[in-house]
Amino acid sequence: MTAPVTAADPAPSRPRRRPPRADARSSAGLRDALTIAAVWLLLGTVTALVRPDFLSTQTLLAVTFTMAVAGVLAVSQGLVVISGGLLDLSLPVALILSAWVTVSLLGAGLPTIVAVLAGPLTGAAWGLLNGLIIVYGKLNPIIVTLATGFGGLAIMLVLFKSAQIPSGSELRAFGLGRTLGLPNVFWPMVILIVLTGLAVAYTRWGRRMVAVGGNAVAAKARGLSLPRTRLAVFGGAGAIAGFAGVLFCSVNPSFTPNAGAGFQLIVIAAVILAGISLSGGKGNFLVLLLSVGFLSTIPVSIAFFGLPPAWSLVFQGGLLILAVGIDGYRMRRSAR
């Protein structure tokens, strides 16, 4: 709700401070997109100036490969954030649990299609579990998923020490292959981001999810069910994380229960950097794709600069702080 307007109202003809644009929302998205694209371009340009061989198919392969799993996870996290679910800190568990189920079924000799579908199903079940605790316990999602993240990791440590995808399986072959010159795992990520972006922007389902995230009280007053929306979002986001698990195990021949931890930072950074505010209710998935691409280029650039390895951690931490700072700035500005 806006601040109360003073009794002395301005003259009727006085123009508003900023004239309305054709579409204020999409122009904000456009601004975010251009900003990230510009920063990305800057990073690429600087790297290419120092190392002209940066502009190569090897770089393209490296960046697109790095984007794949992180990008899918970012979609999952993005949906949670947009819907006002704050953050899902248990994404690494959803990722690894699904990957484990998938490779276990493959190892048991089940058809590839069954194993591949089991991944998203596992993720959806995990997400629903989170959702049920959050909705019926009326608890803060960050606290809940922090707890289930720990608990889930503990359970996985009991279930398995390390998991391997059968080296001769079709899924493994898919993970090693390329299409149109780029890694196979890159394409499902791009398709997923585009489809999710369209669904959020142009379907009734997406509208309502955004509304619940933007103003839960208002959404409820319009007859939308908050519990049902929350459950659907956590379930759906979980299914997407499970899909990430399928891609993950196709490229990671061996993984341990805590192998997902490394994705936590980059995924959250990508979401926030993309302007998907932690306060919920808005987000553009095309910007998210750019954001993931930018963050995935950083380790490659670091390699080209020949910086010591610890720098990539410094960069990631610094970027997260920057992203949170930008998010805070956006919120303060829009609150004026």
Binding site: M1, R25, A211, G213, G214, N215, A218, A221, G281
Partner: peptide, 9 residues
């Protein structure tokens, strides 16, 4: 509280 969602048109 008007029940409007600020982030929507």
């Amino acid at each position: 509280d008007l029940a409007l969602v600020d982030t929507m048109s």
